[in-house]
Design a protein around this nucleic acid. Structure first.
Ligand SMILES: [Zn+2]
Ligand SMILES: [Zn+2]
Ligand SMILES: [Zn+2]
Ligand SMILES: [Zn+2]
Lengths: 159, 159
DNA sequence: TGTTAGTTGAGACTGAGTCTCAAGTAAGAT
DNA sequence: ATCTTACTTGAGACTCAGTCTCAACTAACA
């Protein structure tokens, strides 16, 4: 639930210098719902081509550590990132055919999790909960194969 | 809940040839709880050095499609695989410090998931639910930093 | 305005995984 | 048992994402 100014604040109070590059990376990142590192690199470079790839990655890692960005490993392709300040906790439901991602909340789970953690004497820090299936539109269509293909000859069955 | 013979059976009835390589890969895979693709490659090659890396990857992909192997993207490093026949569904709890992985079941979730899927008119196919935290042993130890390091100068805070 | 430690750009580098294709082989047909 | 053919394999080149190195640069603070 932070705003950009607060992000800058956090960086400062943690001995991390505010540079033009970092400001740009953050500002561009918040423009997305979900994005991959490489997408962000391209986006940022459209605004300032001199920004190096490494800088974007470094900034992402930094924000992630600060808990201001989350990394999601969805089913295919490189991980997705998501800016979390200014957003409440939620989990994800993804269509295996078209790739649509729905964000939802389900408070009942969040409670159950603590229960499980306690059961094993774990101190719970984070969690990821992802549901995969076919969205309404994609169920209809005859073609049930995955959009992002598993490379094999075997036909049928979805995962 | 299949046994090896049934796996072979499945392959046959799906027009997939049974080769020595595939047999070996499956037999070695079941020896693990969780393993990475590269680990399996090494393991397999200890038994038969002539087996190519590609073959292991191909076989893994095949088994995954057949639903006999699951791929898990845990927090760090390359994905882990896990043989699922002969094993009931479960989810995972992982210690961010020492990497311990606990498998647990929680039927109440499994039900809630269908509810969510219905809410969005999704046909649910799979899900992954991972909890991350510190195990009893690692909570004590003063050093709360992550085992598998984020590359940055920022100290403190875990994810 | 100087000092200095943190940050950057560029490009080499790594590791995981994929692809290609000629050679080899399982399995059904004869 | 042998033939036939489509499937599978090994080897190595290749791709892509991400990391590392280090000299040059600069934010922050005195
Ligand atoms: Zn949640
Ligand atoms: Zn869809
Ligand atoms: Zn589950
Ligand atoms: Zn631990």
């Amino acid at each position: 639930m932070k705003r950009f100014v607060e992000v800058e604040q956090w960086l400062k109070t943690h001995g991390i210098r505010l540079t033009d590059q970092r400001r740009l990376v953050v500002r561009r990142a918040v423009a997305y719902l979900h994005f991959t590192a490489e997408e962000l690199v391209k986006d940022v470079q459209e605004f300032d081509p001199s920004v190096a790839r490494g800088t974007v990655y470094r900034t992402l890692a930094m924000l992630q550590q600060a808990g201001m960005v989350e990394k999601h490993d969805f089913r295919y392709g490189p991980p997705n990132y998501e800016v979390t300040f200014a957003k409440a906790h939620h989990d994800h439901l993804m269509c295996l055919h078209c790739g649509e991602i729905i964000e939802f909340q389900e408070p009942r789970w969040e409670r159950l999790q603590d229960e499980v953690a306690t059961r094993y004497k774990y101190q719970l820090l984070t969690h990821t909960h992802k549901l995969y299936g076919l969205c309404a539109a994609c169920q209809g269509a005859g073609d049930k194969r995955l959009a992002k293909p598993p490379h094999l000859h075997v036909e049928e069955m979805v995962a």
